[in-house]
Every structure is written in structure tokens, then in C-alpha cells.
Design a protein around this nucleic acid. Structure first.
Lengths: 337, 337
DNA sequence: CTTAGCACTCTACCTCTCCAAGTGCTAATT
DNA sequence: AATTAGCACTTGGAGAGGTAGAGTGCTAAG
């Protein structure tokens, strides 16, 4: 399959189908694109494309629509880069620069991306799994209560009120603080458990139970920090595309709400040479998402966290890819602080 | 309007319409309910009910459906308390008892409520607006960087990394810490601004810029804490009810995503004698939600934060009210710790 | 390899008819 | 005065054709 005209025909079919939302026939194809041949020739090409499983006809007298495989070929070989418009670029800057909080940044990114693409935007929280402990703090709240705070170099801050099970003095707290800080600082977050394991035993017997409580709490905190989450925006965009989904958008909404599903989906995607990962229709590991495609890319240090959009397989891949990439880049830059 | 049989007819219409999802006529009404009179009599009653605007006919030869006003009367006067089933009660306990975090509790509540009612669940974060500062903490991170932590007696913990704009010593930090703690502790969160306003001036001139930075950050933090948020669950339940919405569920999804909209909706609702607030159809302050009803109630200290469900006007009000109330109660109990 | 022409096949849409459900009204009954 | 039986009337929905248009594949010629 390398006949350049046939590829051009496939591209034209994909573009027209995305644009006009209806099966495209040989006649309109020659009218709308300068293919330089007659509709009969196109028909032959279309027959060949259908033979290869790249396009399909809903029924005899309708035009053709791309199959998942057709979209795949389009994305891999035919999609030309579609740069964002100047206003779009400006929107990214102005909208994201106003954010302060990490939460705020991610939420704004999702919102922005859903508006740019008119799809559902998905932003994964920066994974702290390979983050390191930048600082940890223990603050006395009451006689037997302290606040434990864990700050990672990924910028996340997790905290929790810990019940020590025994009254402790200010001095005790200071002692605990110093010891834990020394033991934990700089350690990888997921290695905190081992780092703190033997620590309680080093304290005076009277303090050991409290230290044990604290170690447990900090470990949980570290693991809670690595627990991934996602932010959604623009789910209403699914409603516009009701026609595109076989039965209903219900299962799709359910999948979106299941963070586990989305996380697995995002982490299993592999980026191609352009740095953007695309998963089309049945390529998705979940049946509920058989009618949807996902365009995603990594961001942040190591590009290990993902940001992307989800929409019907009939989506504007070039635009979506451009928008996702642009937002991811800007997002990385912001988080670099 | 007080004829008891007419009320019984209205109740029967509401119940049947909710159950069978189609307009209900006089004949099926006498078949399904022991009304003790003939269909002709029912027809007379129905004509009267229609006259009063409590029910309406989609077209001449169809049965009747309740109007918003009809649902309102039903909710106010006819809804009998429908206690939760034993398994449902058990589900609330087992499901919510496993939660640890505040976030986790709220998320689980929303999920649970959406499953119990098969509607969209909405949980507002506990409003900290009348909360008091329980503790505040300042922790050195770097030469010119500290972490500011604000803990309220509502249990919320907000933190932020603050750039002081100048290098400070450990002693400086300790000094700042003590002063801010003394000035802020016990103050109402929304009164923190005034409490800290004059504080920077009391420091040595060299420290004043840093103190000002810190005061600003803590104030923002306090105000961010009062900034309300909501948790959603079960949006997929909207898809089941596509038929119930005039055009599409799109606008409803949009409204749900707009936290501002939901917050205003929830705060503007007034609870009735049963402690549950119901807003039906066009009673809602937003046109997008003209086809939906909201059942909500307060929870937590002072019952000032809201929890509730949103669904089509044709919803099972008694069940929804029972579920909302049960979850709210249990939620209050959990948060009492 | 391309193209004009043509027979063929569908679906979407329209119209028509008919049926069942449901109503309102009238007159009779309690 | 309230209830009821009976009946004429309305109307949307389902089904049955019938048609037009879009699109195809194939054949034969350029």
C-alpha cells in the first residue's frame, strides 16, 4: 500500500468525514479535492482501500467512512502538522499564567484543552513515584497530636494529622522532627518505607510508640502521594457527539469517572515519533471506549505524567495533537519552577 | 385543593409516571390502584387537577404527566417517608467507614449516593467560612523560602510554598512563626486578613518585607480555604435518562462542571420541615437545569455544607430524599471526629 | 491505467391508512 | 350532588407502500 494517490484519497476521506460528519462518496471527493482524476478512478481506489480494511461502507448506497485502521494510517503517515492559531497560543499563555496552585494549574490546563479541542480533556497529576523527599515537617498540634507534612521535589505537598497515642513534649517533637528529617530527606518517595523502618528503634523506649505511629503515617503519606489522580474537563462535549456512539455516552462517562481506567489507559499509551500518543477505537484496552480515541502526551520532568483528550474516533487528529502538544509543553515549562 | 381523593389521584399519577416512565391514563390508574371509583370519576378529577396546573397532557390522546407544580405538591404533602433497606444502610456504614482522608470521605459519599439513588451526586466541601484557625505553621525550606500551613478546626489543611523575597535565618523564621501564630490562632478564618494586617509593621525593619509576604500568603491561604468546591459522582446516570431531557444532556453536564453554578444552586436552596431541600424543574435558578430536580440537605457542624443529588424532574423523590438524608447524617457523624 | 456510461441497490423520506389509547361530554343512576 | 356507563372524537404511532437520490461495481472503450 504505497500508491500515493490512494493515500491522498484516504486522507481526503478522513478529512471530509471529520468535517462533514457523513459518509463520503466518490463524487463529492473529486469535487472537493483537486485529485485530477475522475470519480470512476476514485471508485477503483476506494475499492482497493476497502479491500485493505482502511475504509468501510455503512451500507451499499452510502459513501465510505474510515475504519480504525484507516485512522491509524492517517495519523501515522498522513497527518500534517496543524499549527495553532495565534489567538490559541495567546489563550494558552494568558490562561495558564494566571494559575498559582498546582491544582489550579492542572485544572486550568484541562479546561483550556477541552475548549481548544472541543473534546474531553484529561490531565494526570504529576506522578510522584520517582520524586524525592524535599522536606518533611512535624508540627505539634496538641499534647498527643502532630501534623505531618511531606513535600516532594515534584512540588506536591501532602499532610495529615497524626495521633501519637501518647502525650509528648515540645522537646520530643523537636527530636522526632530532626531524626525523621535526617533519615528521610532526599530519599525517593517510594523508598521512604525502608528508610523509616528501623528509625523508631533508635529512640528512647518511651518515645518509640510515638515514633512508630509517625513512621507509619509518613509512609502512608508518601504512598498516598504516589497514588495517581486525574482531572477532567469538558465532559459536556461528549453530548454533542451523541451520534458517534453506538448506544449511548453512558459507558464512556462511566469509564471517565473510573480513575483507574483512565490511568491505565494513559500509562499504557506509547508515544510515537512526534512525541504524541494516539489510541484509536478498538485499540483501546477497554470495550467501553471502542468508539473513542485518545490523544495524549507526557509532560513535566521526564514527561512521565500524561495530558490528553478523549473524543469520538471521528475527531480532528491533527488539531487535537497540536493542542495537546502545545498545552503539554507550556505545562512543563510552568511546572519547571 | 383538598379533596382527599384528588390528592390520591395525583399521588398515583406521580408514582406511576416515575415508575413506568410514560404518561398515565385514567384506566390504568384504576387498575393499578385501589381507588374504589370508576375511570370516569378519575377523569373528572384529572380534569380538575389539570385545571389547577398540577398535571398536563403531552397531547390529546395521551395520559397525563405531573407538572413541576404537581411534583411540588407531591413532595410537600404526599411523599411518605421511604426508609432505606437494611442492605442500603449497611452499605453506607461499610463504605464510609473505610475512608480516612477528608477528600476520601467526600468522594466516597458522592459515589455511594449516586449508587443509592442512581442519580448524579453532588457533595460540597465543608465550608470553612466560619471556621477558626486552629494552628498555623511556618517551616523553612530554603534560605528565602518557607512553607506556610494553615489548619482550621473544620479539619481542613491548606498549605503553600512562600517566597519571602529575602534570605532569612532560622531564628527569623522562629520569630515569624511565633508572632503569626499568636496573632492568628483562634481567629475566624475570614477575619485573618484584619488580624495579620498590622503585624508586619511590628517586626524589625529588615524582616518587614518577608513578614509582609508571609501575611499576604496566609491571607490568600485562608481565603482559598473558604473557596468552595464540590465533588461529583455518577454523571453517567444522566445518560440513562436521555429521554427526559428536552434536547440533550449537554447543558446539564456543563452546569455540573461549573462549580459556581452548582454552589449557587446548593446554597440558595431552602430546607423544608423534613430538613431536606428540593428544587424542582423551573424552580431552579438556571435555565439549563429546567428539566432537572435537586434534592439536597446540609451536613456537618451547623449543616451549612450541602450534599445532594440531581436528576430528571421525573425522579423518585421519596427514595432520593431518604438516601440523601441518610448519607448526610452519617457524613456528619464521621466528620464529628 | 483511466474513464464514460449504465444497471443495480440501498436508505431516507414522504404519504396514506389504520389502530389503540385516551379524553370530554351527556344522560342515567345512586 | 356525586358517580357512572356509554359514546363520539382526537391524535400520535406503527406499518405499508412508493419514490428519489446517492452511491456503487462493472463493462467496454479511449
Amino acid at each position: 500500500m504505497s500508491d500515493p494517490r490512494r493515500l491522498a484519497v484516504l486522507r481526503a476521506i478522513v478529512e471530509d468525514y471529520v468535517h462533514y460528519r457523513e459518509p463520503v462518496g466518490s463524487k463529492v471527493l473529486v469535487e472537493r479535492h483537486q485529485l485530477g482524476v475522475s470519480s470512476a478512478t476514485i471508485r477503483n481506489d476506494m475499492a482497493a482501500l476497502e479491500e485493505e480494511g482502511l475504509i468501510a461502507a455503512p451500507h451499499t448506497s452510502a459513501g465510505r467512512i474510515p475504519t480504525d485502521k484507516g485512522y491509524r494510517l492517517f495519523v501515522d503517515q498522513l497527518a500534517s502538522v496543524k499549527p495553532l492559531s495565534a489567538p490559541e497560543r495567546r489563550a494558552i499563555h494568558t490562561f495558564l499564567d494566571e494559575a498559582d496552585d498546582l491544582d489550579d494549574v492542572l485544572e486550568r490546563s484541562a479546561r483550556l484543552l477541552s475548549q481548544l479541542t472541543r473534546q474531553v480533556a484529561v490531565v494526570q497529576y504529576p506522578t510522584a513515584s520517582q520524586a524525592r523527599v524535599r522536606h518533611l515537617e512535624i508540627v505539634a498540634l496538641g499534647p498527643a497530636q502532630v501534623l505531618a507534612v511531606l513535600i516532594t521535589d515534584a512540588g506536591s505537598v501532602e499532610q495529615r494529622v497524626v495521633d501519637l497515642g501518647q502525650a509528648v513534649t515540645e522537646d520530643d517533637v523537636a527530636q522526632l522532627r530532626t531524626a525523621f528529617l535526617t533519615a528521610g530527606s532526599g530519599r525517593a518517595v517510594h523508598g521512604l518505607r525502608e528508610a523509616l523502618e528501623s528509625l523508631p528503634a533508635t529512640f528512647a523506649p518511651a518515645l518509640q510508640p510515638a515514633a512508630a505511629h509517625l513512621a507509619a503515617a509518613l509512609t502512608t503519606l508518601a504512598e498516598a502521594g504516589t497514588e495517581d489522580r486525574i482531572v477532567l474537563a469538558g465532559t459536556a462535549n461528549l453530548a454533542r457527539a451523541t451520534m458517534d456512539f453506538p448506544l449511548s455516552i453512558g459507558p464512556v462517562l462511566e469509564a471517565l469517572e473510573e480513575q483507574v481506567v483512565m490511568l491505565r489507559l494513559l500509562t499504557e499509551m506509547h508515544q510515537d515519533q512526534h512525541g504524541v500518543a494516539v489510541s484509536i477505537g478498538r485499540e483501546n484496552p477497554f470495550d467501553e471506549l471502542a468508539g473513542t480515541s485518545v490523544v495524549a502526551t507526557g509532560y513535566g520532568r521526564g514527561a512521565v505524567s500524561k495530558v490528553g483528550v478523549l473524543g469520538p474516533t471521528r475527531m480532528d487528529y491533527p488539531s487535537s495533537m497540536a493542542a495537546v502538544r502545545a498545552v503539554a509543553r507550556y505545562l512543563s515549562r510552568i511546572l519547571a519552577n
